[in-house]
């Protein structure tokens, strides 16, 4: 509790006490303090559950995951190329899984960034009010589609089509998985970018128009640079979402634990490995602990993405025209 907060409490109670003294002189300041204080701590406790859950996630991930390092040395865990958890003796090298995750994340952001940011620019600069309303609703509905549904469509529509058209050995590969992941990341990127574009002061845009700049010049030289930190946040959060997404990569990425040599190779990203194998991993065994250790890696990677995004959006927050 900071000093400022407790000061505020006292002020608030004495204010209410002052207001109540005439009508109800039996209510003492102490009672009022209880009446005001108890709800506050109740709501504070509720708000703290998110922190608590975050802490519990870390505690239980590490408790179950770190056990693997008693049996497998960390270097061969992180840099081993062979993931054969059910062989005898088993091999737990997750490099191929990490490379799988990174490849689908990067390739999907190549698709999602232009589409997502482009949609946001269209919505904030060019679209009329009616079109805007409908496109926004569509983006929102896209965000609400369950991942298993998109995974299913990727599996039965995109993958076979790609296999036929491009004549590749399997349609379940990095490219198909990335396309579906991009569809999932676009709503995140669009909505956060759009907020950032709106935060750019109108004055700046009007000044630019007044100087005779065209709409395109204003957009590319005033609007986008002004919203760059917000767009950066949007892109990072979209990538974080793609990296953590499970069902799509489980169903569409092909599932081969190998280091890919082309974009049309199958991969087995980390979430896919956890989801596919947890059901058959004997409880408390090495495989079980190894999957939790993959969970730690995945958790830390997305956590870093999110912290960077938070940092950027706090650090470069637009606080009015003067900071530009």
């Amino acid at each position: 509790m900071t000093p400022a907060m407790s000061e505020g409490d006292v002020q608030m109670s004495s204010l209410s006490a002052g207001g109540n003294q005439d009508s109800n002189s039996t209510t003492s300041v102490v009672e009022l303090k209880v009446q005001e204080g108890l709800p506050k701590y109740f709501f504070l406790a509720a708000a703290s559950t998110s922190l608590l859950v975050m802490a519990l996630i870390m505690i239980f991930l590490f408790r179950e995951g770190l056990a693997i390092f008693g049996k497998v040395n960390p270097v061969s865990f992180f840099f081993g190329k062979a993931w054969y958890p059910t062989y005898d003796p088993p091999e737990f090298g997750i490099l191929a899984l990490i490379v799988g995750s990174v490849s689908v994340t990067l390739f999907s952001s190549l698709v999602a960034i232009p589409l997502g940011v482009g949609t946001a620019l269209y919505l904030s600069v060019l679209a009329g009010p009616t079109v805007r309303e409908y496109v926004k609703a569509a983006v929102e509905l896209l965000a609400s589609l369950p991942s298993v549904v998109l995974g299913f469509l990727g599996m039965v529509v995109i993958a076979p089509a790609m296999q036929q058209i491009l004549d590749v050995p399997t349609g379940l590969n990095i490219v198909s998985a990335s396309i579906v992941l991009a569809i999932m990341a676009i709503p995140t990127i669009t909505s956060i970018s759009e907020d950032a574009l709106y935060a750019v002061p109108r004055d700046n845009l009007e000044a630019s128009y007044a100087l005779g700049a065209t709409r395109w010049e204003t957009m590319s030289r005033i609007l986008v640079p002004g919203a760059l930190s917000g767009i950066g946040t949007a892109v990072i959060l979209g990538m974080s979402r793609a990296m953590g997404e499970t069902m799509v990569v489980l169903m569409v990425a092909g599932g081969a634990a190998q280091i890919p040599s082309s974009l049309f190779d199958s991969v087995r990203p980390m979430p896919a490995s956890i989801a596919a194998e947890m059901g058959e991993a004997p409880f408390g065994g090495e495989h079980y602990h190894a999957l939790f250790a993959i969970g730690i890696v995945l958790f830390l990677m997305t956590l870093i993405f999110n912290l960077v995004a938070t940092y950027i959006s706090n650090r470069f927050q637009q606080k009015g025209a003067s900071t530009l």
């Binding site: 400022a4 703290s48 998110s50 922190l51 938070t310």
Partner: peptide, 27 residues
């Protein structure tokens, strides 16, 4: 009110929102 407590709680909520769903499954 603005302060370290509020920042901490917000950090918790923001990062909870970013935890991958499969990690929630493990948890």
């Amino acid at each position: 009110r603005e302060g370290w407590l509020l920042r901490l709680i917000r950090l918790g909520i923001q990062n909870l929102a970013g935890v991958p769903s499969v990690v929630f499954g493990l948890y």
